[in-house]
Nucleic acid binder design. Sequence first.
DNA 1: TTGTTCGTCAACCGTTTGGTTGAATATGCG
DNA 2: CGCATATTCAACCAAACGGTTGACGAACAA
Lengths: 120, 120
Amino acid sequence: MAGMADPLDTVFHALADPTRRRILSMLLEDDMAVTDVAAPFEMSLAAISKHLGILTRAGLVSQERRGRVKWCRLEPNALRDARIWMQSFGQFEAVNLDAFERFLEIELGADKGETDRKGG
Amino acid sequence: MAGMADPLDTVFHALADPTRRRILSMLLEDDMAVTDVAAPFEMSLAAISKHLGILTRAGLVSQERRGRVKWCRLEPNALRDARIWMQSFGQFEAVNLDAFERFLEIELGADKGETDRKGG
DNA sequence: TTGTTCGTCAACCGTTTGGTTGAATATGCG
DNA sequence: CGCATATTCAACCAAACGGTTGACGAACAA
């Protein structure tokens, strides 16, 4: 078909739909079966299946079949490139990326269990 | 009218097109007139004008008319919401956002002119 | 005035998107 | 086996997308 696009195309396009962003938010809390992902939406299962396909092709979600059930898991690393691309434009222009990485290591290593940031 | 969409829809959709991302990269270096933005592209001026409209409606670009010429400026702050949304999903999950803000203040205040990483 | 440049508008075109429905394919259970 | 469950596939549809072209208005110069 029309040729493979830049991964950024795929990721940003996947994120441009509110249904898909909502799906990602749901998967942030837990892995889910396709049917359970579809449950809260007022659209057909097939539509959700398509959305999950788009998210999967974008690398944002991985799917593993276990028996009849296909489990969907969030793959947050796929956002990395997009985030890095965006950083070129943000107010972080002048940020030293090395220092940024160090900051993250400290933050992530320090109090893993203390942060209670699961607000809706 | 299909109603106003979530700003995240608009921003991510604007970013999902390689032409538009390239335009943003160009504007990162300098403000430009519409005609000059269009110059390096192999498509019509009208097409670029449309792309600039999409970027403007997304808040990523502002346009100011001076005489005949319409100047386009990058508005990187519009990426803020998108970036914050993405941070929920990244490897930065556990990052304390307050500490993150402090980090940025320090980084941005410390060596404003030293970093010279304009790759691309 | 006439003419040129800058940029948008309007109409059109083919392709893609996001949704529907119904059939098909697995898998599991009795 | 026969039947329900889980998920996708295929065909279809209206609407939006990304592009084109030609006409248009606004600003400047002669």
